[in-house]
Amino acid sequence: MSEATPSEAATLLSDPSGRTGPAAPGAAIRRVIAVLWQWKGFLAAGAFLLLLAMVLATPHLLTAYDPLEGDALAGLRAPNATHPFGTDRLGRDVLARTLYGARYSLSIGFGATAISVGFGVLLGIAGGQKSRLLDETICRLFDVISSFPGVLMALLVVTFLGQGMLNVAIAVGVAGIPKFGRVVRAQTQLARNADYVTQAYIYGRSRAAVFFHHLLPNVLLAIPVIATVYVGTTILAVSSLSFLGLGPQPPTPEWGVMLAESRDVLRIAWWPGVFPGAALTLTVIAFTVIGNALQRRFERRG
């Protein structure tokens, strides 16, 4: 329809049915751009997470350097052609360390979220059942957990279990249990008394069938969205603990550890701190943006 005269195009556009007819290709492109522009944050965050996934899977394809081996004579080189992110005090390539570090930071973050979601869902569903005693017990447990400040909780866990990646994940994960548990408990109570659950009993379905076909799927509906936002928070919390020396120990190229190491040289060299810091910040923002977009979409649906 590119040969449509202007008057024809005008009639098409003012089609009373409200549907826009095929217009000039320029308009179509403009519309695509408008849509893309509207989703720019989401798209940028999505692109960043794709890149991150690639980094996690194949860091060795993106850098030739080893994150742990350094040339002590080439310490604290500013970013240049051979070392795009420069080198740290021990002459290790900052780019390689940042790329490999994603594995540690993200896997601890995901692990901690998995602990929060897993136990939160289990306890939340148990608390949403008929038993008042069980519900009270679980709710008070949530209160106890969330009354501890995060860092204090982590210190407590690390004191008992010792330092290390797994223990940091446990510390952060336990602190997040009430967040998911409370949502799941409320959803369970709502769904348990919902008309569609009663209706399923009227069909003659068993308790187990009602649980797995109606209750559980509806209760878990909101979890992926909340978890996506929460992963960002968790990654930040894990890195903070690492920064304090409670997590993985040097020379592990974890972002929090790298930030801690860069502190001593920050006055003379900015690059060992800024690059892992930027990676951490962008990752947290990307997860939050995606999570919030999903949440908006999810809530509009209801």
């Binding site: 008309d195 569609y196 209706q199 009993y201 009227i202 069909y203 003659g204 109606h214 509806n218």
Partner: peptide
């Protein structure tokens, strides 16, 4: 149970 069925006032809330 199959012999006894139900038509509710608010069908929407009775649908999953």
């Amino acid at each position: 149970r199959r012999s006894l069925q139900y038509i509710p006032q608010d069908p929407l809330s009775s649908f999953d």
